[in-house]
Amino acid sequence: MDIKDLRYFVAVSNTLNITKAARQLFISRQALSKSIRELEKKCGTDLFIRDKSRLELTPFGKNMLKKAIPLVQGFNEFEEYIDQQSKNKKIRIRIAIGLGTLNALSPKLFVDFKRNYPEIELIFEEIFDTDVKRMIESQEVEIGLLGSSPEKIEDYDYDLIQEGQIYFQISKDNPLANLEYLVPADLHKQPFVSLGDVCDMHSLFMEKCHEVHSYPDFFLVTHDSNVANNMVANNLAVSFCHIQTINSVANPSIRVLPLHLENTTWGTYVIKKKGVVPTPEARLLIDYLVEKANLSICS
């Protein structure tokens, strides 16, 4: 005996008419009659007195109805509660973001997404690029966001969110500040600071430098942008910076220059584990970022 049996029994008891009850339950008259007969077999006795014109509850049926009604009502309320909780429960997307990526990709994009899709909860973790890839591989997160190049993320499925460029910030007292742009050869023996090999920007830059036998003097790993900025301002080193920095640098002693890398694409990418289809909600977020990111930069 299950809740369906009791629902059918209560419906027939309330109408005392198989045809009317079947209409209320959206099943056939034959299916309902069969269900009631099977329920009577389970109970070991008749629940209804049948004659040609009507049904009537037996004494056992009347007692059973008193107990069945609160059970059916309670289960209906329980189902409504579960349904409501399911509707209210937010769908979560776990996202790993490479350090500094949000400097190139406006956080306002995510604020607007959450405003437009309040049923989706975004959970962020800002970590090193290498850790983003590790968490994608282990599927601890569904998607990752990185400043990177296709050659650095070829082991993943990826979408380009926003084209970009690598920039350096340089003291105006540094002779390099007189250039319009930089190439790897310009930075031979030039002191510079960065996040190190945990960052795709750093590892790509070093690879391109070595291809042309340029060997920058990488002498400090720091995760503190203030340290890097102070070293640049005092002409002790050069460092990477992001596109947002170009619009916000207020230090008159610093100049920002683009790095030109031949045959190399740089941008902000969303990466996914290769061959794994993202959930509809994750796909919605990816498409939203691809559509809105460039509009955000242009505005």
Rank of each mutant, 00 (worst) to 15 (best):
I3N: 03
D5W: 11
L6Y: 01
F9T: 01
V10S: 02
A11H: 00
L16Y: 01
N17S: 00
T19Y: 03
K20N: 09
A21W: 05
A21N: 02
A22F: 00
R23G: 03
R23H: 08
R37T: 14
E38Y: 09
K52A: 07
P59E: 15
P59A: 12
M64K: 11
M64H: 04
L65I: 05
L65Q: 06
E79L: 09
E80M: 07
Y81M: 12
N88T: 09
I97N: 05
L99S: 13
G100Y: 06
L102Q: 14
A104R: 11
S106K: 12
P107G: 07
N116M: 14
E119P: 01
I120K: 07
I123E: 15
D129T: 08
T130H: 04
T130R: 04
T130Y: 02
D131F: 05
V132N: 04
I136P: 02
E137Q: 14
I143P: 08
I143S: 08
S148G: 09
S148I: 10
I153P: 07
E154N: 14
D157I: 11
Y158H: 05
L160C: 12
I161G: 11
I161D: 11
K172H: 00
K172R: 02
D173S: 05
Y181C: 07
L182N: 01
V183C: 03
L187D: 08
H188S: 05
P191D: 00
V193E: 00
S194R: 11
C199Y: 09
C199F: 09
S203Y: 04
L204Y: 07
E207R: 10
K208N: 13
E211A: 13
E211G: 10
V212C: 13
H213T: 09
S214V: 01
D217K: 00
V227R: 03
N230H: 10
N235W: 10
F240Q: 01
C241P: 05
H242D: 15
Q244D: 13
Q244Y: 14
T245D: 15
I246H: 07
T268W: 05
T268I: 07
Y269F: 06
I271L: 02
K273D: 07
K274T: 04
G275W: 04
V276S: 06
T279V: 00
R283H: 09
R283W: 06
R283Q: 13
I286N: 10
L289S: 03
L295M: 12
I297F: 12
I297Y: 13
S299Y: 11
